[in-house]
């Protein structure tokens, strides 16, 4: 069993708005192991990004606040640690890549300067050394003529190149954990494959632990070691990728429907399925299991009781009454 590098325990991040409290992340529990890639999957608005931001303490406050739980990294609780310590961890030990590099990069500084800034922040390197390092990083992520690219502004690069630069920047301090928030959503399909390739290589060459956030089940099989499926601010299922994709017997109904939404995975020409209904309001969530209004297999108990975690096989946990002791009884 691999060593745990980051563990999230009962994390609750709420947003306090005029309309009410949004329970964006509600009681989320997972572990990230050394050198593995954990995929966080779910529809948009299910709390994936907020979970990632909570880890780095970047949730906008107000209106957001972490109201409970722990995030343990390297023996410290990131929820309660001092801002100064948090700043040392950000970028240097836990780095993050954002969805849209276009808006995530500062438009008025060159790519090189933005990378150099991070290197100099966390090390004693001279400007020249940092610059050389930045160019090496750009090369590593596959940017052609990296020394020229370093003096470009974000708008001068193409979407794929910008995302590579963003990855280079996040790698600049050789972080132990990399959080990638839908890094392939804003780029086209051809570039998507290249970007995924970079992550694949990083996992091998740098032994980095990757928390990969995506809404596409298809990416999970390509890059993930383990998967955590999120729905409406809660984790509904955690399993290894092989278990999840090959053992449909113990799947959470939500996971099943996510997989069914994928084109071409079953090799049969059927109509693409979609999940009926919409994501529930997180201000006034439904009772019991949050998925029951959209679930085809919903039972009476689903409306009443929140499903407990059920260990169906080793390392495979499902939050569903289909497999719970109470659900089985009926």
């Amino acid at each position: 069993m691999k060593e745990t590098i980051l563990s999230v325990r009962n994390l609750k991040t709420y947003f306090f708005t005029r309309r009410g409290t949004v329970r964006a992340v509600d009681d989320v529990d997972f572990e990230l192991k050394k050198g593995e890639c954990l995929c966080l999957v779910g529809e948009s608005g299910c709390g994936k990004t907020v979970t990632a931001l909570s880890i780095l303490g970047l949730v906008d406050r107000p209106p957001g606040r972490i109201v409970g739980g722990e995030i343990n990294y390297d023996g410290i609780n990131l929820v309660s640690c001092l801002p100064a310590r948090m700043r040392q961890i950000r970028g240097r030990e836990i780095a993050m890549i954002f969805q849209d590099a276009q808006s995530a990069l500062n438009p008025v500084f060159t790519i090189g300067d933005q990378i150099v800034e991070q290197i100099k922040l966390h090390s004693e390197k001279s400007h020249r050394q940092a610059r050389e390092m930045a160019i090496d990083l750009l090369k590593e992520v596959g940017i052609p003529s990296p020394d020229e690219a370093a003096s470009y502004y974000p708008h001068q690069l193409s979407g794929g190149m910008r995302q590579r630069a963003m990855i280079a920047m996040s790698l600049s301090c050789d972080p132990r954990i990399l959080i990638a928030d839908e890094p392939t959503t804003a780029v086209d399909v051809t570039i998507k494959a290249q970007i995924l390739d970079i992550f694949q290589r990083l996992k091998e060459s740098r032994q980095i632990s990757l928390l990969f956030i995506t809404h596409e089940m298809g990416l999970v099989s390509e890059i993930g070691d383990r998967v955590a499926v999120m729905y409406a601010g809660k984790i509904v299922e955690i399993a290894s990728v092989t278990e999840l994709l090959t053992n449909p017997i113990f799947q959470h109904p939500y996971t099943s429907s996510l997989i069914k939404c994928l084109p071409g995975i079953t090799q049969e020409r059927e109509r693409l399925e979609s999940i009926p209904g919409t994501v529930p309001s997180l201000i006034d969530p439904p009772s019991g299991c949050l998925f029951h209004p959209r679930c085809a297999k919903a039972m009476a108990i689903c409306r009443e009781k929140e499903p407990p975690p059920v260990n169906v096989t080793k390392g495979h946990t499902v939050f569903c009454h289909l497999y719970s002791a109470q659900g089985m009884k009926k």
């Binding site: 970047l58 961890i89 970028g91 993050m96 954002f98 500062n106 800034e117 922040l121």
Partner: peptide
């Protein structure tokens, strides 16, 4: 409110 502000914070900048 722009996203690059979040990036800057994620870098660990004060």
């Amino acid at each position: 409110r722009k996203e690059f502000v979040r990036t800057a914070r994620a870098k660990g900048l004060p």
